Simulated assay, not measured.
Amino acid sequence: MADFFADFQPARTALLIVDLQNDFLHPDGAYARGGAGAPEIAALPARVKPVADALRAAGGFVISTQFTLVPGRGGEPMIADHLRQIRPFLRKGDFMPGGWGHALVDELQPADFTVEKVAYSAFYQTRLDFVLARAGIDRLIACGIVTNGGVASTVRDAHVRGLPTLLLSDGCAAMKPDLHDATVTVLSSVGPVMDCAGAETRIRAAI
């Protein structure tokens, strides 16, 4: 597989952060309240931050894609049936646009662009294609949660759009390590895979 950094142009590259939001990660967020966290997920912001800092310094972009529960009548969130079954603790105000829980975690702020998403893929019924085209971004570095859900769907959708996408192998996580490992193995056939330290080193070499 071609070297992702062989013709690296930082100004045309974005770190695409999938769902690293307060309601998923923060001790006061919705998932912590429901006992649905995982230590592998909690560790991600500190691991991803050096990559984000390096890409910003090189002139690249940071895009935060954020899972959203759209408020319906009376402010009650529109929750898909399958999600309601597995996450019954979700309630009014969780993952609400503009709310604290919806926001990218502080450690990774600021994002150059924020894209609301309502399904696994950051491309599905969102403005991400528009943002990439208008900003001149045609190469992605993907990270976030969960590896076998939002990350995998987003990486595959980037692939079918012809967007070279590097997956940060330790910059994403799942609720179970075996699911993470299996998904990274499968996605290695779609595009290049590298750990965060390796990606940071290659980015800084371009500064």
Results as ranks from 00 to 15, higher is better:
Met1Arg: 11
Asp3Ser: 07
Phe5Leu: 00
Ala6Val: 05
Gln9Ala: 14
Pro10Ile: 13
Pro10His: 00
Arg12Asp: 13
Arg12Phe: 06
Thr13Trp: 04
Leu15Pro: 06
Ile17His: 00
Val18Cys: 15
Asp19Cys: 09
Gln21Ile: 04
Asn22Glu: 08
Asn22Ser: 11
His26Gly: 07
His26Pro: 03
Ala32Cys: 10
Arg33Ser: 10
Arg33Val: 11
Gly35Tyr: 12
Ala36Lys: 13
Ala38Glu: 04
Pro39Arg: 01
Pro39Ala: 04
Pro39Trp: 01
Glu40Ser: 13
Ala46Asn: 02
Val48Lys: 08
Val51Ser: 05
Val51Leu: 10
Ala52Asp: 03
Asp53Cys: 06
Ala54Ser: 11
Gly59His: 08
Ile63Ser: 10
Ser64Leu: 12
Leu69Asp: 08
Val70Tyr: 13
Val70His: 12
Val70Ile: 15
Arg73Asn: 12
Gly74Asn: 02
Gly74Tyr: 09
Ile79Arg: 07
His82Thr: 13
Leu83Gln: 14
Arg84Thr: 10
Arg84Phe: 13
Gln85Ser: 13
Ile86Cys: 11
Pro88Lys: 06
Pro88Asp: 05
Phe89Gly: 15
Gly93Asn: 09
Asp94Phe: 02
Met96Pro: 00
Gly101Trp: 09
Gly101Glu: 08
Ala103Phe: 06
Asp106Arg: 14
Glu107Thr: 12
Gln109His: 04
Pro110Phe: 09
Phe113Gln: 11
Phe113Leu: 14
Phe113Met: 03
Phe113Asp: 08
Thr114Pro: 09
Glu116Phe: 04
Glu116Ile: 03
Tyr120Pro: 10
Ser121Gln: 01
Ser121Cys: 06
Ala122Gln: 02
Ala122Arg: 06
Phe123Lys: 07
Phe123Arg: 00
Phe123Ile: 02
Phe123Thr: 11
Tyr124Arg: 12
Tyr124Glu: 13
Arg127Val: 14
Arg134Phe: 02
Gly136His: 07
Asp138Glu: 09
Ile141Cys: 07
Ile145Val: 15
Ile145Trp: 05
Thr147Pro: 01
Asn148Ile: 01
Gly150Phe: 04
Val151Asn: 02
Val151Gly: 09
Ala152Glu: 15
Thr154Asp: 03
Val155Trp: 00
Ala158Trp: 06
His159Met: 11
Val160Ala: 05
Pro164Ala: 02
Pro164Val: 00
Thr165Gly: 00
Leu167Val: 15
Leu167Asn: 12
Leu167Thr: 15
Ser169Pro: 09
Asp170Pro: 09
Cys172Lys: 03
Ala173Trp: 12
Met175Ser: 12
Pro177Cys: 11
Pro177Glu: 08
His180Arg: 02
Asp181Arg: 15
Thr183Lys: 01
Val184Leu: 08
Leu187Ser: 01
Leu187Asn: 02
Ser188Asn: 06
Pro192Leu: 07
Pro192Thr: 03
Pro192Cys: 08
Met194Lys: 08
Met194Asp: 04
Cys196Ala: 15
Thr201Ile: 13
Arg204Asn: 10
Ile207Tyr: 10
